[in-house]
Amino acid sequence: MIVVTWVILIGVSFTVLMTYHNMPGARSDHGTVWPANQSILLDTQRANLVVFIHPQCPCSVATLSELARIQSACGARLNTQVLFYSPSDMQWEDTSKVRQALAIPDVQIANDVDGKLAELFGALTSGHSLLYSSDGRRVFSGGITPARGHEGENLGRNSVIRYVLEGKIGCDKTNVFGCPILEQPSEVAINSRGSDHGIE
């Protein structure tokens, strides 16, 4: 009887763990073009990848590892910007994930104070990656890991690389696996999304 109980408990625990690993985070896909802002600029000569990270999210180690693989494949053909959520009343500049991102070639890093840019771009979950064409159209929105905190072959990573190298859009959305950056975006942020490149 005790053995049966332990087997059941182990089975339940495993199911809960697997459910957690495969549970996607919240997302917002209202904006389909690069939003007008004064903080980060669209590179009109290359594809643009913007990755939002919460520096205290353990799941995002996998996202940054997958980003390193993307950069290795795409190199200078991709303009990549990693934005770290940073509360205005705390200093999170020197964390292991910031150092991990700094080690990736051809990646720009910036603080996203109070998550203003995450809100503007609609990134609610750490690891949310958005790929834009050189004319500011969003061609991919989602995660670049196969599950929460896991590395490996995945549709998000492959979609970004394929677009950058071949100009072809495979999958335009994937689930995002990570910790929350923000709750639902405010109505003001949603209504203010647009483009500073004249895209409608």
Rank of each mutant, 00 (worst) to 15 (best):
T15L: 08
S86K: 06
D172Q: 07
K116P: 09
P105Q: 01
I109D: 04
E183G: 14
D112G: 02
I181F: 07
C171Q: 14
I104V: 00
I2H: 15
V3E: 11
P105K: 10
L182Q: 13
C74Q: 12
A101L: 08
N48T: 13
R162D: 02
Y20W: 09
R27A: 11
A73Y: 07
A118G: 06
N37Y: 09
N175L: 08
G142V: 01
T95Y: 07
L49P: 03
S159I: 05
K168D: 09
N158E: 14
T145F: 08
F177T: 06
G152E: 04
P35K: 10
K168T: 15
E183M: 15
Y132H: 13
L165V: 09
R27W: 12
Y85K: 01
L9W: 06
G115T: 01
T44V: 13
R69Y: 11
L9R: 11
S13Q: 13
V16E: 14
L182N: 14
F52R: 06
D94E: 02
G167W: 08
D94C: 08
F140A: 04
G115H: 12
A73H: 10
S129P: 11
V107E: 13
S65G: 10
C74M: 08
G167K: 03
V188S: 08
V160K: 03
T95M: 00
P24E: 04
V107T: 15
G198A: 14
D29N: 11
I169E: 09
V61C: 14
C74E: 13
Q100P: 11
S72M: 09
V7C: 14
S86Y: 06
T125W: 06
I70Y: 10
P55Q: 03
L131K: 02
W6N: 14
M18C: 10
S186F: 00
P185Q: 02
V164M: 00
N158D: 13
S28G: 10
L182P: 12
S60N: 08
T15K: 11
P35R: 02
I144Y: 04
H21Q: 12
H128S: 03
E151I: 02
L64N: 02
N79S: 02
D114P: 04
L41T: 07
S60T: 03
V4P: 13
T145R: 15
H21W: 15
V82Q: 04
E166H: 06
I199T: 09
S72N: 06
L102Q: 00
T19S: 10
L42Y: 02
R157V: 12
T80A: 03
V160H: 07
G152K: 06
Q45W: 04
L42H: 07
S195I: 02
Q81M: 04
S28C: 01
G75E: 08
R77Q: 03
T63F: 03
D94H: 14
R46E: 02
Q56W: 08
F177K: 12
S88D: 03
G156W: 06
S134C: 13
I104E: 07
Q81N: 05
